[in-house]
């Protein structure tokens, strides 16, 4: 599509969507949000860019094959699950090595651990898989339009 308004707006919107998606991913453990919603948010940004520029351009700027991204995401989630059992708990059990609860003072440290890894995996899986679907569909429709001309 060749629209100056859309192109200019996308230049502004894409970073907002991506930052918002990461914020939503980050707050997801205790508040509404999480990897799935965050991933979808990021997809909106990428899809908007793909419409404003082109599919090829979006693929180029994404740098990685979206399916590989989804694969890496799935791997992150599995590792996040295995981490729990490697640390002596059950599969998928939450582990926070830099985080502890001190009675009387509340929580201390960084809430980074297996749960965040799992959620990041979900984020990447959704981003990769949905982008792959959108790109494949757009390309098929585009090829059809070209073919009918």
């Amino acid at each position: 599509m060749n629209s100056t308004i859309l192109k200019t707006a996308t230049r502004l919107l894409l970073p907002i969507f991506l930052i918002a998606s990461i914020l939503i991913l980050w707050r997801g453990h205790n508040q509404p949000g999480g990897g799935f919603i965050g991933g979808l948010m990021a997809v909106i940004g990428v899809a908007l860019y793909a419409i404003a520029a082109s599919i090829d351009e979006a693929r180029r700027r994404l740098r990685v094959d979206p399916l590989v991204l989804a694969g890496v995401g799935l791997a992150c989630s599995v590792l996040g699950g295995l981490w729990g059992s490697a640390a002596g708990g059950a599969f998928l059990q939450g582990v926070w090595p830099f985080y502890e609860y001190v009675s009387g003072e509340g929580t201390k440290g960084w809430p980074i651990g297996s749960v965040l890894l799992f959620d990041t995996g979900v984020y990447l899986t959704v981003l990769g898989a949905v982008c792959a679907i959108i790109f494949a569909l757009e390309e098929a429709v585009f090829a059809e339009r070209e073919g009918s001309r």
Partner: peptide, 13 residues
Amino acid sequence: IALPMITAVLTLV
């Protein structure tokens, strides 16, 4: 369940 999942990821890449 985890092994075929890991294999699926590797073979996808």
